[in-house]
Amino acid sequence: MTDTAILHIPESEKPLNKKQKEFNLLSETIEALDRQLAELQHAYDEMLRRMPAELDPLVREYQGHRADIVNLWDRTYEAEHFRKIYQDKLAHLITENAFDLIKNHGLADLKPVFNKYSPVNIDVLLEEARNREMTRIKDPAFLLESVNETEPEVAFHELSVADQQRIKAERREQRLDERIREAQQAKTTKSVRSVYMELVKTFHPDLETDESERTRKTETMQRITKAYQENNLLGLLKMQMELLNIHRAELENLNKNQLSYYNKLLRQQIEELDQQKTALQQRISAICGLPYQHANSLVTVIARFNANINELKAEIKNIKKVYKHWLVPSQLKAYLKPFQIPGQPAEDPEE
């Protein structure tokens, strides 16, 4: 929303009444929400722009190093360095990590490795996982939870390759839809649409017979349409007040019914803008992992995104060191010795 000089009832000799104070507060809140929405949209677009070149390659590199470690474990298992208790731990680590890399990161080359250590074929397990997910998504309880979700969403780089591709496709379609909606003047809230329709009834030039009046109404409709396209409730309200010959200096003279009407529209607009803000914050959270309630500014969001990139670089550096370290069988054995397979009793392998 642009060029929306705030609607404000000025203080006069007598103090403002409750409805006048509410009018001023609601107008200021809308202005603040508009600015914040624009800032958050810029942050979201900036992350989408940077992801293909800066984040996605790091994610692929990190998961590739994980796959290298799985293959190292596989080779080590077949060597004669370890007793059965160590081999059982390796088999567990291989199947756990290989399944995640195959299912969530598309590394299908690990399927033969997984199947060597699992009694159930990987394709059977993947099909079962897909069926469980489809059942969960169709569950009304899940749908209700998704609407009222309070926990931060999973970071984009932690999603499966299939989900990443689906989200990217949805984002491309969403951006296209947004352009179409803007072109068709359809991206508006109910409160904006309500005021817009009232103004159109008054200023639409098609039924005007007087040429000069038609010209005046055409120019006015252009202003109205521009405000409507920008979802600019305050701008539309200013025009509506002009129609009623209510100028800014005369706002204090609005009667009780007029103030109630405007305050109702302003409250509705705030509610709708808050919903837009929450939806945008949740999309931001899905990319950078920042709890959506904390995604309140461009600086905060981009700082979290940059931190994710730096953390991933550090993780890549560390996993490369781990791989090199575990090339020495004794060092890998030292790691495996205290490792406990979940659900199994603790054992201290004899040397």
Rank of each mutant, 00 (worst) to 15 (best):
K14G: 03
P15K: 08
I341G: 04
L37Y: 06
F339R: 01
I287H: 07
Y323T: 03
L244C: 11
L251Y: 15
R60F: 04
Y44M: 03
K256H: 14
H42G: 10
I319V: 09
N71Y: 13
A141K: 14
H81P: 00
I6C: 05
D348R: 10
N115G: 12
Y323L: 09
E149S: 11
A38K: 09
I180T: 02
A186G: 11
L143S: 13
E250V: 11
Y292V: 02
V154G: 03
D3I: 10
L90K: 05
A295R: 03
R179S: 02
D45K: 07
D348W: 08
E198M: 10
A279H: 10
H92Y: 12
Y77C: 00
R214I: 09
L72P: 03
Q331F: 12
L144N: 12
K324G: 03
K238Y: 13
Q276I: 06
E315P: 01
E96H: 12
L332T: 04
N131T: 14
F203E: 08
S260V: 09
E351P: 00
D3E: 12
L37G: 09
Q165Y: 07
A141G: 09
K217M: 15
K190Q: 07
M47V: 01
I316P: 03
D45R: 09
I316Q: 04
Q276T: 07
F339P: 00
E173K: 06
R75F: 08
H42A: 14
S12A: 14
A286G: 05
R130F: 11
E127C: 08
E54T: 01
A314T: 10
L107D: 06
P10W: 07
L254S: 04
L143R: 15
E54G: 00
L48P: 00
I246S: 10
R83L: 08
I137S: 06
T215C: 09
E28A: 11
E230L: 06
I122H: 05
T189C: 06
C288P: 01
T76W: 06
L143D: 08
A307F: 08
E78V: 05
A183R: 03
Y77E: 01
Q87E: 07
Q20I: 06
G235H: 05
V328G: 04
D274V: 10
V161S: 08
R171L: 00
L33M: 14
S191D: 05
K111R: 13
E242F: 13
F23K: 04
L37W: 07
S27Q: 05
I316S: 05
D34L: 15
T220W: 13
P329D: 00
P345A: 10
T76L: 12
E28D: 10
K264G: 13
I6K: 05
R49T: 03
E96K: 10
A5Y: 13
T218W: 06
S194G: 07
I137A: 12
E178C: 01
E80L: 04
N24S: 07
P10C: 10
F339V: 01
A129Y: 12
V70R: 00
I30G: 03
L236V: 09
Q165S: 13
K217V: 12
E13C: 04
R172K: 08
T95S: 08
F339C: 01
S212M: 13
L244A: 14
P112F: 15
T300N: 07
V299S: 13
T150N: 11
V113W: 00
Y292T: 02
